[in-house]
Amino acid sequence: MDKLINEFSVGLFFWQLLLFVGLVLLLRKFAWKPILDSVEKRESGIEDALQAAENAKLEMQNLQADNEKLLNEARAERETMLKEARELKAKMIADAEGDAQAKANKMIEQAQAAIESEKKSAMAELKGQVASLSLEIAEKVVKDELSSKDKQMELVESMLGDAKLN
């Protein structure tokens, strides 16, 4: 301990203190401040860049989601349009079928009606002809056999019975 105190050099202590404090102050001004500032700036720059990249990524994701949504919407719209068209088609076909059926039915009905009326008119004509024929026959018979009144009546009766059976 004595040796240490003896060895202590005031001059060296003085110079060391002076030079070191000067060194700290000078280095702070010319070296440490600029160095640490630049390093900090660089670090914050890197951080900002990373943040920006992250933001861009998020934005990208948002855009993609938007796209997806739009696409889905379009798809849904197409789907509904197709469905509508299909329904329309089915309806049109069904309508057309119904129309045709109705028309056909009507035509058949008309045809049937026509046939009926023809048949009726034919029957009427036939009846007329049969009557005239019977009249003619009757005339002839009358002309031929009007000798006996009883015989004539018998003949007309039998002939009418035959005609009615037709």
Binding site: G11, F20, L27, I35
Partner: peptide, 28 residues
């Protein structure tokens, strides 16, 4: 009272200048 620029003081001075040069050129 001895305030001489001794060998050690001289070395401290040199080291100080060296550090000033090293770190200010690094800062630049």
């Amino acid at each position: 009272l001895d305030f001489s620029i001794t060998k050690n003081v001289f070395t401290i001075l040199i080291v100080g200048l060296l550090m000033l040069w090293m770190f200010s050129s690094m800062a630049k």
